[in-house]
Design a protein around this nucleic acid. Sequence first.
DNA 1: CGAGGTGTTGAGGCCCATCAACCCGTGTGG
DNA 2: CCACACGGGTTGATGGGCCTCAACACCTCG
Lengths: 233, 233
Amino acid sequence: MTALTPVDAKALADIALFAALPPAVLEEAAAMARTRPLPRGLRIFDQGEPAGRAHALLSGGVRITQAGSDGEEILVRLIGSGEIFGCVPVLTDGLYPADATAIVDAVELSWDPADLLALMQRHSRIAINMVAIVGKRLGEAQERLRELATQSADRRIARTLLRLLDQAGCRTGDGLRIDFPLRRKDIADIAGTTLHTASRILAAWQRDGLLISRNRHLVIASPEAMDRIAEGN
Amino acid sequence: MTALTPVDAKALADIALFAALPPAVLEEAAAMARTRPLPRGLRIFDQGEPAGRAHALLSGGVRITQAGSDGEEILVRLIGSGEIFGCVPVLTDGLYPADATAIVDAVELSWDPADLLALMQRHSRIAINMVAIVGKRLGEAQERLRELATQSADRRIARTLLRLLDQAGCRTGDGLRIDFPLRRKDIADIAGTTLHTASRILAAWQRDGLLISRNRHLVIASPEAMDRIAEGN
DNA sequence: CGAGGTGTTGAGGCCCATCAACCCGTGTGG
DNA sequence: CCACACGGGTTGATGGGCCTCAACACCTCG
């Protein structure tokens, strides 16, 4: 069951949770980690289920969604390589607060919750890194909250795209590309609107040449114009 | 300038950040802390300003609000006694992400950011407690996000009141009372709606006897009915 | 080739933000 | 002691943004 492939300590250096740690500690964390490939589409864990492992992504992408009792869902966050996910419940109530699905073929590291907790107890730097990571996400969530309460759908979608560029943007010939594969529904679920509204707005931007949409990827041709929409109107 | 009143280590035991710590560590934290009374209405810090201190509330209440460039604001959180605030920037970018105002006469403890950081480095338990606290808030923010994106204004206001009851509710003769003084605008800014809509909805509930509104305090006469509104409709 | 997931576009209507007017209690200063 | 300002609350009227419902086109994959 458990992959016995030894985990390379150098791989851990790319994970924000282990930033600024001496090699010995990386070795220690690597010794307790387990590697696993995540084929596209795999459901990694379900909302409400006991947190059996704490996760970090070495490559690929993972979609974190949260559904309410009525079935309506939002996209809480997209996880890229080097990011952790499903780690907070280790320290709180022990239940995953959301669903996690691989959106491209990916590779993860994971730890037994008790092991990660022990690691954090021994090395406060890891715990401090985790506060910084979770704190940053909290700040983003509050920003989204404010936008959702006060701004129009097109501004929110523009902000969504800019944030995604920030997280996973890369230069291409005709603009900046978002490295995650995104459905219209994903955009809508991040921006807090419906598939239909998102589709209309993106189609309009595409007509105006702000945006190029290729199979499941978005390229922002004019980040400046996008900025302008995100700000004024 | 600095209050030289020695801080009682026992007072620290009521602060969640210092839960489950040996007395010696409490003494250590107390020695670096500074006490300050916060008269009602005092602006404790401003959004965007460098985080000069990390704060914890011994008694009273503090309102944390965040304003966008256009002036629209939301109420990020109400801080009650035993809770920390303005502590995350110590570990991230060093800027307060929101405004903080005392809404009743209060007393705070505060630390120099470097001291708190050192304390967390020495005692990983403190850092771990902080992850738990920030993680819990992140979960709440994501829940609010989902509600705001998918639910009607009255459901959101009902959820808001229930959450506040959970945080600061106390039994009274005619129901459960929320211990913070709340303006209609505060409710609106938490639930993500306008003063007008909040006023209408609360007035309707008051007519139906679900709710009593006394000077600036709310008493929920029927938490069950409130639950029903928060769920189905 | 059919099935299912996805994207597009139109039509209609409703929730709620907005604008507006007015009331009330409190404090303040001439 | 009255006038006035000011923060806060209530309530009506109106309009528009966007959600909802619906129909159809496209693509991939078994």
